Amino acid sequence: MTSTSTPEGLTRFNGLEESAARAALLDACAATAWVDRLLAARPYATVEDLYAAGDAAMGELTAADLAEAMAGHPPIGRPKPGDPTSAREQRGMAGASEELRAEMLELNLAYQDRFGHVFLICATGRTGEQMRDALRERLGNPPEREREIVRAELGKINRIRLARIAGPVEEDRTQEV
């Protein structure tokens, strides 16, 4: 494969029926406005074009759209049962002590009380302690600042998930996120 050819996974995504492509994108981000924007721009010539469309759509999300996107994410430390994406992304909490789990639950509840939504962080590659420390730090943010951090974190998560959608077919089941 040359560098100018379209990756196999992106070709597969471009060729999906709209309902299947919608389902794949909703797995990446629960905001229907984001999904609609990405669907409308298909087909993508390169993975970078897909990322750029995802980033642009993220920048255009309203507060209601962000709330819809956040509703698709479980609290840190409590991945959705039976959801391999959620479990993989929150792997840093997998071996956490009961003490750390209890602290994360308490901090998550305080965060939800303060901001009205789940604490959202790109958990990929972070330890439970790093996520706890970030949550502690962000609890002190003003709501406006926190909304922008959430938008940035959601953008990181979406890029990782788009990479899985558009990545090489042989990596779909094994690629670590």
Rank of each mutant, 00 (worst) to 15 (best):
L105S: 02
Q112N: 03
M104W: 03
R164V: 08
G77L: 03
E17N: 05
D55P: 02
V177Y: 14
Q175D: 14
R37W: 02
A123E: 03
P43M: 11
L105V: 09
A31M: 05
L66W: 04
T127L: 00
G116I: 01
F13T: 14
L38D: 02
L105D: 14
P79Y: 01
G155Y: 13
N108H: 02
P74K: 07
A20L: 15
T85L: 07
P75H: 10
D83G: 09
S97V: 02
A31E: 09
N141I: 01
T62G: 07
Q175G: 09
L162C: 08
V47A: 11
N141M: 12
G77W: 06
L26H: 12
L100R: 00
M1D: 15
D55Q: 14
G72V: 02
A71H: 01
I149S: 01
P84I: 03
R22N: 04
E176Y: 03
A163Q: 10
A87V: 12
G116D: 05
A24E: 13
S86G: 00
Y44F: 15
Q112I: 02
Y111N: 05
I76V: 15
T62P: 04
R88N: 11
R147T: 08
L50G: 03
E137I: 00
D113C: 01
E18M: 14
A87E: 11
T127W: 09
P74T: 06
L39V: 04
E137W: 06
G95S: 04
M70R: 10
R173E: 15
E68C: 11
A52D: 15
T62H: 06
E99Q: 13
G77F: 10
T124Y: 04
G95P: 04
T124S: 14
E18P: 00
R159D: 07
I149W: 06
R145V: 15
G72L: 08
R159F: 05
E146H: 05
S97M: 03
T6F: 12
I165Y: 06
I160G: 00
E8V: 11
P142M: 13
P7Y: 09
E153T: 09
H117N: 09
L135I: 03
R164Y: 04
R91H: 05
L39P: 04
F119D: 04
E171R: 08
R12S: 13
T127M: 00
V118T: 08
R164T: 10
F115Q: 03
E18G: 01
K80G: 00
S86D: 15
T127P: 01
M70C: 14
N14C: 12
Q90L: 11
D36Q: 10
A64S: 13
E48D: 15
K80S: 03
A31Y: 02
G54R: 10
E98G: 14
S97T: 04
A57T: 05
V47T: 11
G128N: 03
D65F: 01
L26A: 02
L61E: 13
R88W: 03
